[in-house]
């Protein structure tokens, strides 16, 4: 329920869209997946990313979604999606079942992000994670100067009503990768307009000016 609300709000609200109407963050995620791969999208919402991956990357896609409405919409579209919970149901998947496991705007809504991340890299050879960066300057300003929990166009919820229970900054996420043994293959930060930030800037710059981040991970050797 919560995940799908988050996603439809993101979809309807201020998520940046490429010509043709596709969300830029989803295009970036799709870009990190090789053609024809076997993919599991955890928290797949209404199936927009799975559909995109099928159309553009010819993947064999599967999805898990918490909200019943989201699942039923996906299945009626012909997508292979099951109703389930990232926090409890990933344990049932065997090792190496997928080439990629994707957590698109999902990780911050899980109860145990580290466990979910570790399952992700057990089930899949690669992981793709996109999340809102809580270190963005607007958010820092609202907390630091305003003294209030932040709300932004991408994160429109009041603190008592948010599905996002585990926010992190880009720096925090890198720390989680380190302790979980995840190797960062690629990382991209997006500005408020959904455009990728320049590549050759230091991490602190991304952490301050990136509104969202997309990471491609693999198991460390």
């Amino acid at each position: 329920m919560m995940l799908s609300r988050l996603k439809s709000d993101l979809t309807m609200a201020e998520a940046a869209r490429a010509p043709g109407g596709t969300r830029v963050d989803l295009l970036l995620v799709a870009d990190m997946v090789t053609r024809g791969a076997k993919v599991l999208d955890v928290g797949c919402g209404d199936g927009e990313l799975l559909r995109l991956l099928g159309e553009r990357r010819d993947v064999d896609g599967r999805g898990i979604e918490l909200s019943r409405e989201g699942v039923n919409e996906c299945v009626a579209k012909g997508l292979a999606v099951i109703q389930g919970d990232a926090d409890t149901d990933l344990a049932d998947y065997p090792n190496d079942a997928f080439d990629y496991v994707i957590l698109s705007q999902t990780l911050q809504a899980t109860r145990h992000p580290r466990v979910v991340l570790e399952h992700m890299l057990r089930i899949g050879r690669h992981g793709v994670v996109s999340f809102p960066n809580f270190g963005h300057w607007k958010i820092r300003l609202q907390v630091g100067l305003g003294g209030r929990m932040p709300t932004t166009d991408n994160l429109p919820y009041a603190w008592w009503d948010t599905p996002n229970i585990h926010f992190c900054t880009i720096k925090d996420f890198r720390a989680l990768c380190l302790v979980s043994g995840a190797k960062i293959e690629r990382a991209v930060a997006l500005n408020a307009y959904g455009a990728p930030l320049r590549l050759n800037v230091p991490w602190w710059f991304w952490n301050l000016f990136g509104e969202q981040a997309v990471f491609l991970l693999s198991r460390s050797a």
């Binding site: 064999d60 599967r62 019943r68 699942v71 039923n72 299945v75 997508l79 099951i82 049932d92 065997p94």
Partner: peptide, 18 residues
Amino acid sequence: IVHALNAAGARVSFAEIV
């Protein structure tokens, strides 16, 4: 059933209807 199919790597959709 779904858990078994996932464990077997099958392509499965699952919906519960209210």
